[in-house]
Design a protein around this nucleic acid. Sequence first.
DNA 1: CGAGCCGTTGATATCACTCAAACTACGTGG
DNA 2: CCACGTAGTTTGAGTGATATCAACGGCTCG
Lengths: 229, 229
Amino acid sequence: MPLCDDIKNIALFATLTDQQCKSLAASCHASSCPKGTLLFSEGSEAAGIYIMLSGRVKIFRAAPDGREAVLHVFGPGEPLGEVAVFQGGKYPASAECVETGKALFLPRKALREAISKDPGLAFNMLAALSSRLRAFVAKVETLTLMETPQRLAAYLLLASEEQKNENTDVVHLDVSKSLLAGILGTARETLSRCLGRMVEQGSIRLEGRKVFILDRAFLEELAKGTENL
Amino acid sequence: MPLCDDIKNIALFATLTDQQCKSLAASCHASSCPKGTLLFSEGSEAAGIYIMLSGRVKIFRAAPDGREAVLHVFGPGEPLGEVAVFQGGKYPASAECVETGKALFLPRKALREAISKDPGLAFNMLAALSSRLRAFVAKVETLTLMETPQRLAAYLLLASEEQKNENTDVVHLDVSKSLLAGILGTARETLSRCLGRMVEQGSIRLEGRKVFILDRAFLEELAKGTENL
DNA sequence: CGAGCCGTTGATATCACTCAAACTACGTGG
DNA sequence: CCACGTAGTTTGAGTGATATCAACGGCTCG
């Protein structure tokens, strides 16, 4: 069972025994997701959760006029759609693949059974939701009290934290600039202008999707609101 | 034990047996919270969760310049601070009492033990966090794609839904207008102006903290973005 | 080669924040 | 009973930032 190995590599299921993994593997299935695939849409009945094995998904809410609010971008190992399994029964947002990959689907019944049998899994799930909540807290904070340049600076610094495997000051944007604009809650044009001003001001250098941080201190001041662009 | 009765009335603990309630009651304690009390502040080490028995608390993040982003306002029966119990160990935001009342404190260890013993409680907790996440999804959506008048209209309609015990079209604001401005992610002045325009336009009537909805259809159109103020 | 997506730049208008001031309601203490 | 302080609220005027509309160049992919 190749699925079994996939499951063991998911942080959420790290505490499970081989036996439990097999049992889970029996009720779930993997499918390939070309870019553009809609995994589920807001308001639709929730059949279960998805976990990306590869590729990338954006979670968003769409307005009638076509604009959308990006809530998260999830990569491999991250579960999506759990909220609907535990409350309400319907997905609160839509999920669309933005980078071709594979997704694992796990029916809600199987997940609930696994949780009720294993308190460890319950705690992992609680921790996952909690960390999601933390992300939202940060998002609401930036949306409410920061303006676009500050949000952008904060994003770049955070991304460089996460990518500190390479100890240089290079951040590789793992999303398109359009999507990044969505993540920051602004328009493509505004993001473009902000980046332009940062380059002009000398705090960063741009090279495609690579961002070279030239003046980290300045970005930090900017994120704190001490400085202006 | 009066605490035991209090615990049974909390939705989160509805599934617990009398025995389990007693055990929980033994490890928690209630305290009075005058308006202005800071229950905890962001970044501080989390000792456990609080559950309001009466009164009201606002959860917020503060910026260095004194402005703040209001994340939630919780009333009786709602737990706060759970995120830190399951992940990270530190509170992600601050909690301040905005209406004098009483709060129950439950140490994290006691909560974790209770959850590991009772899958039902684990599911209740997962449901509570999930519904919190739904609230955040809605909040991020309004912050990202709506402007203040639309957010206000959406808030009024939602509040009138929740207060449909009285079948009239009267919404009683349970928070001060300043706090409401914080909840909507805007400035006091802007909120004041928006309300003024609504009154002028004829869709609502104001009387202290009471809002009379005169033209519900208009507010609905406004919230959808179809109409303007 | 054309279609479509991505990214940039410019011009314009509008919204909302900031600063500033007055006005209410409420409770306290003289 | 009134003067006073505080907290809450409203209004005005000015300014800055961002969304929107529009046009253009680059890129990939069929």
